[in-house]
Every structure is written in structure tokens, then in C-alpha cells.
Design a protein around this nucleic acid. Structure first.
Lengths: 211, 211
DNA sequence: CCTACCGATCGGTAGG
DNA sequence: CCTACCGATCGGTAGG
């Protein structure tokens, strides 16, 4: 009888030996979404993957939405820091702008599950107090203002310019994550693709009147 | 007793008096997604809304995914025809290009449920034989080639240019549909916003070297 | 297109 | 953090 009382799943749990169930649940959620799709996400399955009973998650999250909010927050934080990293490598304002966009697309593709939670229509509440979100956009607006001052970007409403940048990279990221692009389009790699597309926006498609 | 045998829901069903349950199920799916979100979509609830038993839909769709494929097909058809309509109104190639993008965004916002099904990660199969999908992209590539010939758009790979256009309008549409934009950004109306953003891509953000 | 039924999963809570 | 339980919903099928 005593033998049967030996703790099971010690190996699994040891990864979270600090008792950080909360983080284990976030990780399990992402793995589940990545493997089975968003529709497969349930608190019970997440608990199962984390090696606890299905009642345990309620100690950390009030409900499913609260868990998703935490996942989204984690995602926005990671994405913003990724963008900052890549931008810090560049010297000129316009290169920082490009790096910012490439980082956005790369993050989305490399963390598709995070990306889906961050931007999916999952939340009933505005998800307002997420400073990380505004942060990323503010980062972009700042880079544009800097580029304008340096004479590398046209004068104009930086908010509207930022929205164009955001739309382009968000659209490209979404199409990639949702598998809408042909293999040929992605053949050269995501980074190169993102760079090319960003440059098309910076340069513009219209032929300059002065031929 | 005979009184109790009177047909119920005759009024509801009369809208589909031709017995077009298939279409009724598609409509019910869209209404359900629009009202309750994608997560609320179940074959049983769709059947309920269409006024039939939950076993009836299987006469028309093998499973949930088959229903969604049909919804997506309907969406791609409607979107492509909307784009063609709006483009037909314009005289110059570059205006047709702009109209094409504005139509894309307007369709997405006005038919958010369709848009979500069309581009969501819901299908296990590639959804290949959807000519409508390719059609819309071909429409865009054609408009770009035409604009290049007219000297209104820079020479270059029309596929890459088309991807930039698609990314921008798809990103803007996604951000709008998923409620990521502030009310101020949308204050002037979706059509005006889409037009402005499209023009930013055509014109480019980078300052022309000749100041 | 319906009735009746299957096994399975879910969110959530009581009580410890 | 667990056991045990609740009501509810689901996808799918048999058989008519």
C-alpha cells in the first residue's frame, strides 16, 4: 500500500519545483494551442498537462478568460522587448523602423500561439490596462518621429504613419500565422520577406512623377 | 390533440419556404458567430437557430468543418464580387487599386463573421480548391500590372507588390475586426481610414531624396 | 428531417 | 492542491 503512495509525476513537476504552477499553466496553455489549436483549449486540459487536478487552476485564475489575459500580457511583454532588442542594434532611425517591423513579424511566426491569444477576439473586456500594448505602438510612433526629425521619413501625422506600418506588419504576420501564403512566397525566409515588405511601404508603390 | 400538431415555427421557416435548409444553416452560423463569438459555434446551436433538430444538418454537411468551409467559400465569393464592383466604378488603374483595397476593408468590417471564418485557423485541410481566394489575389496582381503599364506604379515584381497591398489591407481589416484600434483612429469612418492608409502605401513613407 | 440514445468533455463549486 | 460532485452541452449515430 505504501508503495502506491509514492508521488507520481515527480519528474514532470520538478521543472516547476518552485511550485510555480501559475507559470506552468501559462506554458501548458501555449503548448496546447500550438499543438491542438485554439479550439482545444480548456482549463481542464491545461490542468492535465500541468500535472494537476482540474480544480487547481482556480487557485491562480478566476476563469478561462483570466488565464488568457495573463497569456496575452506575457505575449505583449515579450514582443515589445523583442522589438526593443532588434531596434537597439541599428544605427539610423529608418533602419530602426525596419528592424521594428521585422521583429514584429518574426515574433508572430515564432510565437504563433502567443500571437493568436494577443490579437484574437477572445476577450469580453477591453483589455485596457495592458501598458505593453500601448508601449509597442508608442515605440513605433517614437521611431517615426525620430525618423522624421532626421529627414528620413516624410513629414506628416505620425499616428497615421504608424498605423500604416502596424497594419502592414500585422497583416503579413497574420497571413503567415494562418497559413495563407504560398510556400513560394515564404521560400526566402520570413525575415527577408518582412524586410522586403517593410521597404515597399517605406519606398511606396507609386511611381514618382519625376521619371 | 390535433391542435397540438399544428406546425410550429411556420413563420420562421417561411423565409426558407423553398426548403433551403442548407442556406438557412449558413445564415444561422454567421448570426451565431456575430452575436456570440466563434467559440459559441456548435452544430447543435446552429440547428436550433435554423429551427430544426440537431441531427438535420448532417443531411447537408458531413461535419462542423464542412459547414465552415461552405461559409468561407460564400465569403470569398462575396468579397471578390464586392471588390470587382468597386473597382469597376473607377477610371484610372491607380484608383482601381485603391478601390480594391477599400472594398477589402469594408467587406471585412461589414461582414466580420465571414471574415473570421475565411481567415481563421479553423481548417485542418489546406482549403485549396477555393478559386475565389486565388481570384481576389489575381484581381490585385492584375490591377498592379495594369497600373505599371500605365506608368502609375513603379516597375517591379507584381507578386511582391500585391503582397504588400494585401498585408496592409488585411492587417487594417484584422485590427478593426478584432477591435484593436482606438475609437479616435476610426472616428472618420472606415472607408476614409482605408483610403488614407492605402494612399500611404502607394506614396510611401520615406522622404524622397530630392527635397 | 425527427426521436432517442451513446460516450465524452466541459466550467464551476463544496468541502476538506 | 485534491476528491467528488453538479448540470449542461457537445459531436455523432441508429433507425425510422
Amino acid at each position: 500500500m505504501a508503495l502506491r503512495r509514492t508521488r507520481k509525476k515527480t519528474a514532470d513537476k520538478s521543472a516547476y519545483h518552485h511550485g510555480d504552477l501559475r507559470q506552468a499553466l501559462l506554458d501548458a496553455s501555449l503548448a496546447l494551442i500550438a499543438e491542438e489549436g485554439f479550439g482545444a483549449l480548456s482549463l481542464r486540459e491545461v490542468a492535465r498537462r500541468a500535472g494537476v487536478t482540474h480544480a487547481a487552476p482556480y487557485r491562480h485564475f478566476a476563469d478561462k478568460e483570466a488565464l488568457l489575459v495573463a497569456v496575452a500580457e506575457e505575449g505583449f511583454r515579450a514582443m515589445t522587448s523583442r522589438m526593443k532588442e532588434e531596434m537597439a542594434r541599428e544605427q539610423s532611425p529608418i533602419d530602426r523602423l525596419g528592424a521594428c517591423g521585422v521583429a514584429y513579424v518574426l515574433f508572430a511566426v515564432e510565437h504563433a500561439a502567443h500571437f493568436r491569444v494577443m490579437f484574437g477576439p477572445h476577450f469580453t473586456r477591453p483589455l485596457k490596462s495592458l501598458d505593453e500594448d500601448a508601449d509597442a505602438f508608442a515605440l513605433l510612433v517614437g521611431a517615426l518621429a525620430e525618423a522624421q526629425r532626421a529627414g528620413e521619413v516624410r513629414d506628416g501625422d505620425t499616428s497615421r504613419q504608424a498605423l500604416a506600418c502596424w497594419s502592414l506588419v500585422h497583416g503579413l504576420a497574420s497571413l503567415l500565422v494562418d497559413g495563407q501564403l504560398t510556400p513560394e512566397a515564404v521560400a526566402g525566409g520570413v525575415a527577408a520577406l518582412a524586410r522586403t515588405q517593410t521597404l515597399l511601404l517605406l519606398r511606396g508603390l507609386a511611381r514618382p512623377p519625376v521619371d
